[in-house]
Nucleic acid binder design. Sequence first.
DNA 1: GTTCTGCATGACTAA
DNA 2: TAGTCATGCAGAACC
Length: 917
Amino acid sequence: MDSKVCMNQQCTSSSSSSSIDLKRGWPLRSGGFATLCHHCGIAYEQLVFCDKFHSNDSGWRECTTCGKRLHCGCVASSSWLELLDSGGVNCISCSESHGICSTLTGEKNKDCRVFSADDGGGKQFTTVGSQSNVGITDKMKLVQFGDDAGSSDQSQLFLSQTDDRIESLGQRKMKENFLTSGEFGSPFLSVLNQTSVEAAQNAQLNEYKEYMPIKDTHGSSVQTNLTISPPATSGDKNFLPAVVAEERPLNKKSSSFSQGSRSRHLLPKPVKSIMAAGLEANVSSLTQLRVARPPVEGRIKNQLLPRYWPRITDQELRQISGDSNSTVVPLFEKVLSASDAGRIGRLVLPKACAEAYFPPISQPEGLPLRIQDVQGKEWVFQFRFWPNNNSRMYVLEGVTPCIQSMQLQAGDTVTFSRMDPEGKLLMGFRKASLMQDNKHLSSIPKGSFSSEPFFLPGADNLHSANSQSALLDSVKGSGVFPLSALSKHFSAVEFGWHIAEMNGEKTLDGIFPSPMLVPERKRSRNIGSKSKRLLIDSQDAFELKLSWEELQDMLCPPPCVKPSTVAIEDHEFEEYDQPPVFGKKSIFTMRQSGEQEQWAQCDSCLKWRRLPVNVLLPPKWTCQEHTWALSRPSCSGPEDLSPHELESLLKMSKELKKQKIASGLKSAHEHESSDPDGLGNSKAVRGDTSGTSAASIATTTKHPRHRPGCSCIVCIQPPSGKGKHKPTCTCNVCMTVKRRFKTLMMRKKKRQSEREAEIAQRNKFDWVSKEEAEVESYQQLVIPHDSLENHKRLGSESEFLSQSNKQSEKLEEIGKEQLDLNCHPDRENLQQSSSRVSMVSLLQEASLPLQTYLKQNGLTSLVSDQRVSSGSNVLLPQVTRESELQFDEDQCLSHEIQEQEVKEELSETDQAGNDPS
DNA sequence: GTTCTGCATGACTAA
DNA sequence: TAGTCATGCAGAACC
């Protein structure tokens, strides 16, 4: 906590005059930021957004009964407080003495309470607390603040809660929610004022028309106040919040306290709630309110975090259940994380939810779980867990098909419900909204937000205008109304905002498409909010990629800098002394006459202007900077292109871009095989428009336009740049270039050596060919058949092997029979290792005199053999891969005997074969 | 080489 | 500070 001075001048905290711990602050409507000390902060919790009570002393008053001084109806301990509907306050001790609010003393299931107060500044608020039938003691208050001037648009609807756990819960809620409210700031308030609040009022109030309005007894100017209370009907798991409408006298001071009046607000167990007189009925809108429904089962009432509370409208519930007699019980929901929506197919389940609503599992393997989706399709997931520390981590496995079927992405929400009494599990989903951050919210005009769509079969109008303005989350079952429901409901992530005036695909910021028009487009993410983890889905990544490609289009070489060309391996690199700069994207066209043109769009009026080809535009460019035209057009002037021309221009641009991407991909693909390092891509991306028609768009023939995949020094240079690159420079760019160059040179050397090897082999082939046959026949005696096959697979060797194929085959059979009996136990390994011999070593070996080679390899018997046969036409081979095998001479002794026989046979065969020639 | 699987780690949050 | 959960990672399995 900060250590500042509480801005509440009359803070009753003993330390208020000095540095004290401050609670969170809140934005003031008038601007600025208010903070209260921990002491007063509790009061603040109960009067969230009351922007007056801390700005003057009018919020101070005395307890009607005992005269205890209270600040704005709230004092250090909220349990002191009772806000009287007549406009005053009571400290809690007095309230208790009246025996009204038994809930504050810990009794349960007996009461509800209605608080109302006038802060003296003309603001009124009325609260109703209620006890849920499931034993949750949280109270809720719907607080509406009026205004002295009676301006209804200043009214606000707020929700807070009081209960005997207010200290802990309230603080927690405040933490959770006020961050959001703080993020929203004043614009949030103003947005709420007229739109959501009023609509929500209407919606809520009209839903509960059966409740009788509480009439003002003072007869003065009245203002409608809302009271919302959680229905407490036992067993009704899907009830909706009760709303109490009151007409309260304005400008009533605390003197008008009326204890008796409180009794009027004691709600009966509300099957339904009260409707305000004079308010228009609009039941349907209420049913579309996104309801945050706390756990319906007491066993996890204090375990399930609000973020998992299902937010589902009554209408959705009805549609799920259809006409059947089944009751749909929303269980929980979860916003899909990146890993949930990823290809792994594992959906991490909140532990509390899994243990509460899914069958108990004792083994990590878990059990299959049948869950029906919104289309009625039944999926079977494996519900299991992993031990995690001393806990468990529950997952649903095999969700990928389902996720894909629903086209869900990270950030979207899946909801789990149960259909009673069958107990069937249902799975729904809700798409995340459009907006990404609160920046957008702050600029949203009134009445311009909508709720996120919930995808259910037959849910045809869940995105109605009424629901757009729906504010109130309501309470189900337990009666815990989370403050979070308010703030979260308006969080960018969960609320689909769009500009009402959006025209076509033009959206809030001109970039993002409307979710209404392109529902599958941009999804909001938790970027920079709760988690530092960046949730980014494939769509985002795709757009990011596109952006990068577009960015490449915008990369221009630095102006006034001439590149120096560096040639590496037939590839020319343009090296700039300066990093690339960002220029405005433009389109190049070529007329029939061959004249090139450049077109750019004014950032101000969005009109297209013709420019000289060689002009490099700044990132932001307007018509006023169109200094090249004789008649300098202004933004008010007509566009240089007719709509038809513009359309064809953009069309051609798009096509060209596609072609370029395709060619880039193709080029990249080609270079993967021939130029894995990507060098030379610049050729393919250098704006080659030769394939396009004469009238098509042409990129400049100069290099300035770097296309995707361009690997020139400009494009691989980071935007920040490093200035000049000296030979000793070790920056990433230079190191990359050096590395590429090194790789390239190594590749070249390798190719060269391979070529030389081939040539050398060809040269040797003539005089070796005959000997090869003998070698092969010899090898057949000493190596297994499969090794020969491997040998055959080797390219160059197979060529001359085919020359002696017949002999080989013949000897192969001989060899097979003999090899089985005499092979070396480790021969296979030896042969395998021998197969890794390089061509270079082969050539080296080949250059050795045969006798030396044989000696080196322990083939002494063959040395003598060679001597013996030297008089004949038969020459022993000088080199083979297999001859590199290092045999143990003793072990090969028997082979040598056999070899001798075979060679004699071979020489005979060979002589016979050579005779005709 | 890719996908699957089980677990570990660390960020985040509630208490 | 402990619990939860998103995600990374290594080894296994599979193609």
